[in-house]
Design a protein around this nucleic acid. Structure first.
Lengths: 146, 146
DNA sequence: TATTGTTATACTCTATAACTATA
DNA sequence: TATAGTTATAGAGTATAACAATA
């Protein structure tokens, strides 16, 4: 057909998404790394426990779409920093309830505030209408609207 | 202040961008990996040489925002597969002009068509208006509109 | 037999410093 | 001294298989 001869990388959505994600993530990555020495998955797990309360690893995985092996390592790291505790569930002793400690709660609240502020800075570059359109489109792409 | 108590991960742009990028990239990643055994940077370098013609590593880096060490490795991989050749520039013998071979051109045209088709599939999930808004917003975030 | 979570392993991606050869 | 490109190394992200404990 030869009708995509002028197709450019900057028209290619996966490339655009990747570049935008890198640029938008950079500043906040420094925050959870330098303030708490956390990795991305650790911050996400901490966030889920702080935002939604105690739950099992499988529940975090279902909510945040993180594979169980990543969660297992993140939980071990957060536990070693005394940011969470585990409690075997009597109903099914394969599962553990994960719960933030007071220190974990404090870290969560600190990071949630910083994340929210970072989000606001990004948002400031858009009109309210464009921001709503952008987040809606991204949720659609990420299949988070189903 | 405590006014971000309902701030959610799915409101956090870096998270949304990352999830959308992963989802949107997955299918096409299989293509250049399984058909040509390429990595992401190799595909991007091949694309730039195919799309814009022969140029030096530094020029690719400036256009595509790829660090010189990544380009160096991608060029070595593409050369070993006979997808490109190098020619020292007489004007400045530190630089090399990189040029796709016929096989490299063929791979580029094949992948460009497949990328364009993949892009069209993603685009099909949006109205023309929403797609234009999305790509414009992403270029803004990636600072590609300057 | 199936499920929850862990461990091992490998590959990909990113970042930085140190190096070479040329200028 | 500075620049184009290379090499070495480490850290971070991702993916999969195999495993132990429990159901």
């Amino acid at each position: 057909m030869e009708n995509d001869g002028d197709f450019d990388l900057t028209d290619f959505l996966p490339y655009l998404l990747n570049q935008a994600a890198e640029e938008a993530s950079l500043a906040f990555q420094q925050v959870y790394r330098e303030r708490y020495g956390m990795l991305r998955t650790e911050w996400r797990v901490l966030f889920h426990l702080g935002r939604y309360g105690p739950m099992t690893a499988a529940e975090i995985g279902a909510r945040a779409r993180i594979h169980k092996t990543k969660i297992s390592r993140a939980v071990a790291a957060l536990e070693s920093r005394r940011f969470l505790t585990r409690a075997r569930l009597e109903a099914d002793r394969r599962q553990e309830e994960l719960r933030l400690t007071v220190a974990g709660q404090r870290a969560f609240e600190d990071l949630r505030g910083l994340a929210s502020a970072h989000n606001d800075r990004l948002r400031a570059g858009f009109s309210e209408r464009d921001w709503q359109g952008l987040t809606r489109s991204l949720r659609h792409l990420a299949r988070m609207d189903r």
